[in-house]
Design a protein around this nucleic acid. Structure first.
Lengths: 193, 193, 193, 193
DNA sequence: AATGAATGAGTATTCATTCAT
DNA sequence: CATGAATGAATACTCATTCAT
């Protein structure tokens, strides 16, 4: 029974790697079967159809990210450090999975099934609440302004980080200064005092 | 001659609408022909192939955004106001074209031709330099910190705005406070002074 | 009116050249129009359709050959010389029109219309009777055996010539001895006396 | 494994029959699939594409002819008899496959792939050497003139036979005398001694 | 359970032909 | 008369899915 789960996981991993690399329509069931070292027919023993594999792979992908953030959130560490780790982790993941960030998953709206979209949006909400939790810790530590809704602060953090990484990815010629500058901006804003 | 350009534009508009709605693979040449009220064969009088139409539609889409930002940048207005307008415009566009933001275009890497990807990245760079120009104006007005590279500040602005909108889009149940809060964060940061 | 005929002829010549070079299906109406320096629509002023052009071109092609043989037949010359000239002419034509000998025209049975096939076969019969006429002259001159039906002799001559040329065409590395040897064979046979 | 080869052969046979009957362009993949009682997709399990099927069918066709001649050549029989059998066999084949003689295959230059053309020309060369071998036997038997290159004699034989058959095919109203007359011509020529 | 040979629905593209100018 | 922009019927080929083994 556990062996069954293992094979299912193998297929999912192989599929995810291919989807990330080539997209949904350019990944053939044959490719997945070969990559997972099983017969084409076997895929249908474990999954309903191609769509199903893609949906599950997307959910799995988001789950990994959530686990990651959950782990960071639960660390015994200061807000400052957690933020730094979050940034570095996001950076690592994005570069590794450059073709399939969460944003991109959601841009595949026409590919993922309606139901799975809802599931993923739910998970993103979960992810946000984890980050809000970290922000709340910052508030308790007296580091983060208390009068601003944590969701908004989280939004700023996630958005700035993401854009920073996107920019680094597209703009290979690194005209951008080092990452801690963005931290200064997040903490203190760009306005002259 | 101009009539020819008009028909080309008509096809492009019809195609763009369909691509935004249904994605590349789910949009059939037949669909485009019907939507543009021309014969299937006519599409090939104006475009090389489906790929070509998609590429052109993507470029067109980015061009519209750039024109928008260029217009804002060239206004005779203060930095503060330009930022506000930029935010509102982005909001308007994103909701209108919710399925096809620039990020999403770039997540179609496996669909758009290599050459067109380069063209679009070039245009994004152009877009960034327009926003940097606005930031520079803020510096001259003494509103924005001078010791931080404008690209970084622009990155913070774009990222925060984008994420804020994404959040609003996914999280229909609006738990998020009003938009000017995010401006306060951008200007002053989240750190307790 | 004669100008009309001239343009018709131009189209036919251009078409024939293309058909010989690329075959029926690989020759597009557009190609013919361009080659004849007329508009695509104009082709339909002079011909019913593509099929019609092909049919007429084939007939024209055969007509040229017949005219050629007729000319040889009518010369004031000996049988021996006429045969020699015939051979050289056939050689010239075959190499020039290597992709479209009469045999090949007939191998296009599924392309040429039934009616035109009949016309062409009629013309081939005419061609044969011209050659028979030359053979008859040989008989009168006392050079050719009288007790063998002229058609058979003509058949031997045409067949041997044709095969000789085909061989030369396919077998670029010329292992074959010079052409007058074949004449010796035709005149005297290969049997030891 | 052998079953696989069998199905491949079935497809090839069905395809060959259709190509012979209707030509390359008028034979649809669907037709072949129906004729071979398989699905359209199955054709692509056994062949690269339509071109590939045609090429293979042509080669197969020539191979059958070669096998036939090889068999005749290897018989324990006199030159005279072998020639007679060759003639009758050719007659049988040509009438059976009237739309697809070797000449016709080669007239499909624009259809068959360059590589396959070379293969077929190679096979024709092989066929010629088999016939030359028969001629050599004639020389040894003292029946055929030794001072004439065997290739030339073979050329005369093949050409005369082919033309004779072509004539019979086109000229349904049989004005042509019986076949052994042509043998007399081949052996003794048409010249008065 | 696992397989992969067989399948055929689905689609981009071509090109002969038409007809408004 | 001449044209070429517009057309859509026709077709090779792909690939997710099935099912007999």
């Amino acid at each position: 029974m556990d062996e069954k789960n293992q094979k299912r996981q193998d297929i999912l991993n192989s599929a995810m790697a291919l989807f990330k690399d080539k997209g949904f329509h350019n990944t053939k069931m044959e490719d997945i079967a070969v990559a997972a070292s099983v017969g084409k027919g076997t895929l249908y023993e474990y999954f309903e159809n191609k769509q199903d594999i893609f949906d599950e792979a997307c959910i799995e992908y988001v789950d990994v990210i959530i686990e990651n953030i959950k782990y960071i959130s639960n660390r015994d560490d200061t807000f400052n450090n957690k933020l730094l780790i979050l940034f570095n982790e996001k950076l690592k993941m994005e570069s590794e999975f450059s073709n399939m960030s969460i944003d991109n998953i959601l841009s595949n709206k026409n590919i993922i099934s309606e139901q799975t979209i809802k599931t993923i949006i739910g998970k993103i909400t979960e992810m946000y609440s984890l980050i809000c939790h970290i922000v709340d810790q910052g508030k308790e530590e007296g580091v983060v302004k208390k009068n601003i809704q944590s969701e908004i602060t989280a939004c700023l953090i996630v958005g700035a980080m993401g854009e920073y990484l996107r920019l680094k990815t597209h703009n290979k010629e690194n005209k951008i200064q080092e990452g801690d500058i963005i931290f200064d901006l997040l903490y203190n804003g760009f306005a002259v005092k």
